[in-house]
């Protein structure tokens, strides 16, 4: 899923709307007109964690990188981490049998996977509602 800057969406230097630019995250590049953009897995947060880990001379710990969506999610439906680390939360989640890949038949090997939606219907009720 990608998004394109068909027009100039980000340059709000004219008053009085310039103030809205104060809300911007200085760690994320603004995208110019004519440029494609998309989810980065919050690469700025990954970099921050990596710098911190490098300074301390250790690998990045599980849970140290939290993507914005993961952090905000009220139901903690989003898990993020390093799947190379077998002890990480993400590695465990991906081992769940209900883990599946969206459009798996295209063989693009996405890093984002989904867990099957379950329903717990009352057997005494019909299937319809």
């Amino acid at each position: 899923m990608r998004r394109f800057n068909f027009l100039n969406y980000t340059d709000h230097t004219e008053e009085p709307y310039a103030v809205t630019m104060l809300a911007r995250n200085p760690n994320v590049t603004m995208r110019a007109r004519g440029v494609m953009e998309k989810c980065t897995y919050c690469v700025q947060r990954i970099s921050a964690a990596r710098i911190e880990a490098k300074k301390e001379g250790r690998p990045i710990k599980d849970g140290e990188v939290v993507s914005a969506c993961q952090q905000a999610c009220p139901t903690k439906s989003i898990t993020f981490g390093d799947m190379n680390d077998p002890k990480s939360e993400i590695a465990k989640v991906k081992k769940q049998p209900q883990n599946y890949i969206l459009l798996e038949e295209l063989n693009t090997k996405p890093r984002t996977t989904y867990l099957t939606r379950l329903r717990n219907p009352n057997p005494k009720l019909g299937k319809e509602s």
């Binding site: 989003i78 993020f80 991906k94 209900q98 867990l115 379950l118």
Partner: peptide
């Protein structure tokens, strides 16, 4: 290297 990955649980996503 790290292999960043994400999982989204559709069962709890509201």
């Amino acid at each position: 290297y790290n292999a960043w990955a994400m999982s989204i649980d559709l069962n709890t996503c509201t």
